[in-house]
Nucleic acid binder design. Structure first.
Lengths: 225, 225
DNA sequence: ATAAATCTTTATAAAATCTTTACAACTTTA
DNA sequence: TAAAGTTGTAAAGATTTTATAAAGATTTAT
């Protein structure tokens, strides 16, 4: 079970049953509505990740249900309908349906179309932000803040700082840092490291003379806490 | 003309002609490719907003073209195919196609499905106007205003500006910007970017010498705030 | 077909960053 | 504590990156 919930809206019990079995055996969580009224209520009370909507409902046209849902519901809606007229299809798509399948449809195709619309609706990017006391590093935005103010770091400074932060608490050797940032042919250039560590401390530390985050491990390397 | 460009990939001249006329009369800008090789090259050199891809190409299967495109192209691809087998449909959808239409298709339905996938790829249904201080960007109308006055941006300038605005606060690398706007074969042409950033600043910033919105992250890329 | 607009390329000045140097300050060890 | 080895810092010089204008090429509109 992957916890993706799909709401089936259809008045025919055989179709609901068939869809439910198909979807459940493909690890979706299913809920059902048998008419327009119930569809609106169920969608509102417990919004699913996707809605499969029949157009031929007993109490109200599926087109109306679609319009009402789209006033607030922005996740995918796939129309399943016995009507194959171009007018129905165009109307439904322009009212915000993400796809339109004519009954009888093939199960594999339905599942593929479900995967397709879920894929394109779930393109949200997660934003991993690291927090260390007054410091925060937004890796996807490539931004470092101290007390909520942006600190301007050069490309190399940022790379070095990230490497230290990602290995919080660990001692990173001169050798390792030089190899990671400047490449294997620079492992002897310890002076680079000293210059950049000093610059970083000047920007990041409250008192660069008594660093509280970037600590020196004499003879070995540096450690971030 | 709304400047939304669609690439038609089909080896049959009648179909290309029909599609071109249909799309152009609906205000789309059209380019054409007659085989797999040309499709890849044209998409890479000048990425369109949407690709209509025939599966039956003379030099290589459309399935392969789809896979190659999806390695970097993230905008909508709609398959147009004479094959209606479930296997073809499922394969194409799982390879990243956004929709699959069986030939012969109805023109109105094609246009509705194009509108549908473009709508969900732009995801700005809720708030199609972005505000940043004195600037506002109407994504659906493709209009940028500064202090309520329309700023005239060329197509490329607008695409670049949109990309920056949609990722407000994030640093976008040269590589990413070049790949998104000019295609993967232009990732080394940083000078393009500098020229267009300069032009954008001249139009958008109060003082182009001291930009307040489009910031430079030296050695990395640009950031919009 | 011509004019206008836009894109691409080139050249160069300015700015930012990196590298190197010199020396001061600190740590470790005997 | 003194000597030796390490580390920190500032600043000058070298290099890379960026900004900008403008000329040439291409595309688009009339």
């Amino acid at each position: 079970m992957n916890n993706i919930e799909i709401l089936i809206v259809d008045d025919e019990v055989q179709i609901r049953k068939m869809l439910t079995i198909t979807l459940q055996s493909n690890d979706y969580k299913v809920s059902e509505a048998i008419n327009a009224k119930e569809a609106i209520i169920k969608a509102a009370n417990h919004p699913p990740e996707l809605i499969l909507l029949d157009l031929g409902l007993p109490d109200e046209s599926g087109h109306i249900v679609l319009q009402k849902l789209r006033e607030w519901y922005s996740k995918p809606i796939i129309i399943l309908s016995a009507h194959s007229s171009e007018e129905d299809i165009v109307t439904a798509l322009d009212n915000g349906a993400n796809d339109y399948l004519v009954k009888p449809f093939r199960t594999g195709e339905l599942l593929a179309r479900i995967r397709s619309v879920l894929r394109s609706s779930n393109q949200e990017d997660e934003n991993p932000i690291l927090y260390f006391g007054e410091l925060q590093i937004d890796l996807s935005a490539r931004i470092v803040k101290k007390n909520d103010e942006i600190i301007k770091l050069t490309s190399t400074e940022y790379t070095l700082f990230c490497l230290l932060c990602k290995n919080e608490g660990k001692v990173l050797t001169h050798h390792y840092l030089l190899k990671s940032i400047w490449g294997p042919s620079y492992v002897t250039q310890s002076q680079y490291l000293r210059v950049f560590i000093a610059q970083l401390r000047k920007k990041v530390e409250d008192d660069p003379n008594r660093p509280s985050h970037i600590l020196t491990e004499s003879g070995v390397g540096y450690r971030f806490v």
